[in-house]
Design a protein around this nucleic acid. Structure first.
Lengths: 251, 251
DNA sequence: ATATAGGTTAACGTAACGTGAAGGTCAATA
DNA sequence: TATTGACCTTCACGTTACGTTAACCTATAT
């Protein structure tokens, strides 16, 4: 699925200006720019945007989000786990606030006493603004200021290149598959390399990767004549060979 | 209890700069400025600040908060009720977000399917930013742009004046009490006026008003010689008379 | 053929403070 | 008595994450 800027904006409930801004600061580059100069976003960008919004929800500064997500060691699943616990914290802070309001109402009615300190207790939790610092520090500690800067540079002007990489990956899969086929062994190193590249190629367009889905696709390649024809260019039995390689790869 | 800027800042967990800014935009004026030019805040300001922070928690713009709170029809108790329901809404939005993250994790593991729409569902709730508009509109509808402007003007440069008003109120209580005492009737209109002014005077320094506390204070006036001497200036039996007036007032 | 609904860059505007600079005030201590 | 350090003051410029035109190009439906 491909999205123009307003389609994605509508999907994620952000403004088009926000997406242009995220492009400008290299937080979220479109997958490619079409012939009319329009920004085109793909599945990878949809998921990245969701991640960004999770961070934003926790009041993490955009600069910090860039550092986190462009970091080569960024672990999506781990990040999601962290989101979860932070959101739980935020929820319990909200609950505190709610009971403060309830107490204030009772206080107004003269039902209970309330000290000035109690009136502001729920506002005290600094955890949200601390998040920013924490995330930023963690990275700076691990990699140092310079590495972060460099890591950011790598991701600049990636939009068109990203698309090119994807196309190139697709070609490489075919190339490598031809060579691997000569070995005749789907468990060989080169065959496994094909499976890996095939996975990398998939993640450009797949909402998320799973071994089961990868195997499912391999099965479909064998079953569907159109796909079969595509891979059979590499040699007789290439499709079945690829399927076997993928099955080994996903063991 | 009187607070300097940093004492109040610490109490409410905001920065001193924030309080200076709130002074500047006439959102929260100090009760008075002391001889060295220091801002001094009293109980009224403490409570007003708490209200402000409740609104801020709901992402209401400061400009809008000014309009709401300077509005002559502003009802503190009603506002608290509204806070409560808005906070509940915010909480349920957070809960939605939490389950979205949980689903995304399951999706990552390949356990469930998730459409792109579902990925952003929890972000969709606009209610928070809508609050701003809603609050602002309500007021503008009721009073019109001009009235709001004028209402704001009234509250400009109120800090020193506010203190003066309080002092004047205290004097008026004594003055009126002297006159009321001549009637000999604590239930008379003028005696009830004294009780009302006494209440108004109290609310400048009391965390919150309750009839019980008002009566309790009246009792203390009678029991404590120092207070008794203060009111007895108005005439013999003035303290007991004030107590009776307050008792009638708080029935 | 033209209206209308999209897209683009460029550039200035904004909200709610943060962050010094330069200096006055207050309480305690050498 | 002088000084130190922790307060306070008023400018005044900086910052973040966009909103908001303006001026112009592109796509599509009638």
């Amino acid at each position: 699925m491909e999205y123009t800027i307003s389609k994605l904006a509508k999907l994620a409930n952000v403004s088009a200006r926000t997406l242009r801004y995220y492009d400008e600061i290299n937080l979220l580059k479109p997958a490619r720019i079409n012939s009319s100069g329009y920004r085109i976003y793909g599945q990878i960008e949809v998921d990245r945007l969701q991640q960004i919004l999770f961070f934003r929800e926790l009041d993490v500064e955009l600069d910090t989000i860039i550092s986190i997500m462009n970091n080569p060691e960024f672990d999506k699943t781990k990040a999601l786990q962290t989101h979860l616990s932070k959101l739980e914290e935020k929820k319990s802070r909200l609950e505190k606030l709610i009971s403060t309001v309830e107490n204030t109402i009772a206080h107004e009615k003269g039902e209970i006493l309330m000290s000035n300190e109690q009136k502001f207790e729920a506002f005290k939790d600094k955890l949200i603004s601390e998040n920013e610092e924490k995330y930023g520090e963690e990275i700076r500690e691990k990699y140092g200021e310079k590495t972060v800067e460099e890591s950011n540079k790598i991701f600049k002007n990636m939009s068109q290149e990203k698309y090119d990489v994807m196309v190139k990956l697709g070609e490489e899969v075919l190339e490598l598959l031809t060579k691997a086929l000569e070995t005749g062994d789907p468990t060989s190193t080169i065959a496994q390399e094909v499976a890996l590249k095939h996975k990398q190629w998939l993640t450009f367009t797949w909402p998320s990767y799973s071994k089961e889905a990868h195997r499912g696709l391999a099965d479909m390649y064998v079953a569907d004549e159109r796909f079969k024809a595509y891979y059979e260019k590499c040699g007789d039995g290439a499709t079945e060979f690829l399927k076997e390689a993928i099955y080994t790869f996903t063991e």
